[in-house]
Amino acid sequence: MSHVHDGAHESSHESSAGAANRVKTLVAALEAANVLTERELDETVESFLAHAQPANGARVVARAWVDDAFRERLLADGNAAVAELGIDLAHWAPVRLRVVANGPGRHNLIVCTLCSCYPLALLGPSPTWYKSDAYRSRAVRDPRGILAEFGTHVDAGVEITVWDSTAEVRYLVLPERPAGTESLSETELEALVTRNGLIGTALV
């Protein structure tokens, strides 16, 4: 599968090899018990990667930047507003979307301290750092320090709200539209929106 890469990861070489063997044994047992097939597992991963796209989040934000009425609907009822764009949030599980808007003097940051809840449909697969103990422990206590590690500076006067996703509500940050983008089309604006901007670790 092409989405698997070598590189930095959390597990040690030995424990990873051990886990690989355990998975192989488990899958073989489940196949033998007619619970599932390897093909079904592969299709599950393919379907996830096809549906969970950060481009979806970018479309939502760009639309909110160009259409004030949509922005109001998005902040009032996230599920209904993204459904207007044909995005199905409930593909994996019934979650409620709350969109939180950055503004002058106001910044938002998303975390899940208890596990790793994340709006997959809008942001794509979550990065390893989001699921890490370092992020989960520190985002709620030291959000400014977290932002600094991403090279993101918010002024001392800006109030940060950290959203800890402890129930089946998923959060998405609506970043401020960058200055000097008045002449850009909606499609051009979409290209400016970064995944980290939608988590709140970057400004756009």
């Binding site: 709620v140 206590r141 940060i160 709200t161 950290v162 800890d164």
Partner: peptide, 27 residues
């Protein structure tokens, strides 16, 4: 369930980000 907002000082005392707040979804 409710979203509840906690001021940072009420959670960390002097040992966290001094300004701002934390919101969590609680039953």
């Amino acid at each position: 369930a409710y979203t509840v907002r906690f001021e940072n000082a009420d959670v960390w005392g002097p040992d966290g980000e001094p300004r701002g707040s934390i919101c969590a979804d609680l039953f």
